[in-house]
Design a protein around this nucleic acid. Structure first.
Lengths: 114, 114
DNA sequence: TGTATATATAAGTACTTAATTATATAATAA
DNA sequence: TTATTATATAATTAAGTACTTATATATACA
């Protein structure tokens, strides 16, 4: 059971941010595995700028963070975010998206630097 | 703990719908009390068409239902909706909006027909 | 019956969003 | 060093959203 109380305005902002299938799926994936931009490009079959712009929105509110690893930039979920418990509760009933990463591994396009 | 599994696409649709402060607050209120349109107009200090249009979006996905009572049309939450458990889980950590209805009662503008 | 009240809906408009295209930057490989 | 790869960002455009204004409908009341 979630304890943190949340402001309506901020809750609406978080819900709006997650109210997009691409971003919702990204966050669901990032909650389990770090991922780099090019993996998302392949998973969503979307353009690189489009993916970067979705990640930027998530990063702008601090829900995810970036970290360069060699030539790649990996994104990870920010478990210290004030509203991470709220987000996690929203993600919980959603179906696992692990299959999407498994497909990359099978195709050999999963990035595993470091 | 929520058991129902939910499709990503529909989840994103619900989150988008709730990702608006007016609609989120409406649903939070309706989860506890039925309300008529004119009460919402007063609570949100918004125009009547604006309120009607938000209610229509909620009604279009079946999350709320309308019922005429005399000259008023009351809205209530649809607890039988497939995703009501998901919605309820999202509402749970949000602050009670009871105060907004209390203020109407104090001003004598709360509708209590029937 | 006519008037007022409550609501819905249509049309128009301003704003926002999500994509594309074009370009810049940083790291790596040759 | 130059070319390639990975990424970000700016500018543009198309689509979607949330208001407003105007109007229609249904009920209640005089």
């Amino acid at each position: 059971m979630l304890k943190t109380r949340i402001e309506m305005e901020k809750a609406a902002m978080i819900l709006k941010l997650l109210g997009d299938q691409t971003r919702l799926t990204m966050v669901k994936i990032l909650d389990v595995h770090d991922c780099c931009v090019c993996e998302f490009v392949e998973i969503f079959k979307a353009s690189q700028p489009s993916i970067s712009q979705h990640l930027r929105k998530l990063r702008d509110v601090g829900l995810v963070q970036e970290e360069r690893r060699g030539q790649w930039i990996f994104y990870s979920i920010n478990k210290d975010h004030e509203y991470y418990p709220f987000v996690q509760q929203i993600l919980e009933p959603l179906p696992s998206q692990d299959q999407k990463l498994k497909e990359l591994e099978e195709k050999g396009t999963r990035i595993n630097c470091c």
